[in-house]
Amino acid sequence: MRTSRALASPAPSPQEIGRAATLALHDELALSPKPGLVTLTDRGSHADMDAHTFMRSLFALRSYFVRIAELGAAQAPFEALEACGIAAEARMLAATQGINTHRGAIFMLGLLCASAGSLAARGLRPTVDGLRHTLTQRWGEALARRALRPSALPGGQAASRLGLRSASAEAALAFPTLFETAVPALRAARSRGLASGPARLDTLFATMAVLDDCNLAHRGGLAGLRFAQGCARDFIAAGGAGRPDGLAAAAALGAEFVARNLSPGGAADTLAAACWLDRLG
């Protein structure tokens, strides 16, 4: 008798969901080269942080991702998720002496973990359709209201000033860039036979090419954002990380990003989210 998928692959526990989030953030950190971003050996465009800062943050956030998955499983209201995220941000800042390493990931991956927890409580594994439906049905109205709030954060203020789609607006739309660009890009790269590193690098560039990355807009204005998007499109069009000089080309772009003080933090958070879903299978 054929074993059903549900029996062969049970829904993940909150602990498994949270562990996948922590590991996915490490996947993003360990990827190198990444233009303007912190890696295990490079500060990118950030004078105030390095890999040690990120690792302290990761350790401080481990329990958060489990807890918010548990809240999702309990069908908690958005206010409970938001309070959990605010507390996690405080722990991050305490661990990093006030440096923002993972504020965007706390928001994005936290919501995704909550959605996965909600699905798992019903015996379902996280899928693109399931996660998007859960975000919209359970917390969509609250996320839409949140997206209308004036932002106190530099990236949100840059998005408002320049007419860009903010991180809050992405969440209210159930993360279209993640699910319509990053996840397909990672799967396509894997299907072409690329190893994990080059596949993730192609995913990062595919995301950079289309995302209204508020961190880029804050650091470099609209011109900086468009420069980064153009570089990403050109990188992918030239063959991406799979071509013989792909890694060297990415490293050369890194020098240009540092010279312009650019860092695609929103794309990095989206890559981590794609790695999270990939780890949960």
Rank of each mutant, 00 (worst) to 15 (best):
G239Y: 01
A185H: 08
G239A: 03
E180Q: 12
G197N: 03
F205T: 12
S191L: 10
V183K: 13
L247A: 15
R233D: 04
D202C: 01
R233Q: 12
V210C: 10
L186D: 13
A238M: 12
D213I: 04
A228W: 02
I236Y: 03
A206I: 00
R233G: 04
G239V: 10
C231R: 14
F227P: 00
G230N: 12
N215D: 14
R219K: 13
F235Y: 15
C231F: 00
L222H: 14
N215F: 01
L201N: 01
A209H: 13
A237H: 08
R190Q: 10
T207E: 12
A182S: 14
G224Y: 01
R243F: 04
F235M: 12
A206C: 11
G239S: 10
A174T: 08
N215G: 11
T207L: 04
F227E: 02
A209V: 04
R219E: 14
R233M: 07
L222N: 14
A188E: 15
L204S: 09
A223R: 14
F205C: 07
V183Q: 13
G246S: 14
A185E: 06
A189D: 03
P244C: 09
M208G: 01
D245H: 13
C231E: 15
M208S: 10
A228R: 00
A195T: 05
A185L: 04
F227V: 11
G221I: 00
L201R: 12
L204A: 07
R226V: 07
D245R: 15
S191H: 12
L178E: 08
F179D: 00
A241G: 04
S196K: 06
A174Y: 09
S196H: 08
L211A: 14
H218C: 02
I236T: 08
D212K: 11
L201W: 10
A188H: 13
A232Q: 05
T207C: 09
P176F: 02
P198H: 07
R243D: 06
F175S: 05
V183C: 12
S191T: 11
L247I: 08
A223D: 15
T177S: 12
G197C: 05
A228F: 04
S196A: 09
T207G: 13
V210T: 15
A206G: 05
R219P: 09
G221F: 10
T207N: 12
A182N: 06
L173K: 11
G193T: 09
G246M: 13
D202M: 03
L222I: 13
A238G: 04
D234K: 06
I236G: 06
G224L: 08
F205H: 05
L216E: 02
L194V: 01
G197Q: 09
R219L: 01
A195S: 12
D245C: 11
P244M: 11
R190I: 05
M208W: 08
A209S: 11
A228V: 05
G230M: 00
A209C: 09
L225W: 00
T203C: 14
L247R: 14
L225A: 02
G220M: 01
P184W: 13
P184F: 12
T203Q: 09
R192G: 06
T177V: 15
R219V: 03
V183A: 13
L216H: 05
L173Y: 04
P244A: 14
F235D: 14
L211Q: 14
V210R: 12
G242K: 05
L178N: 08
C231H: 04
D202T: 02
G224V: 07
L222W: 10
F235N: 15
R190D: 07
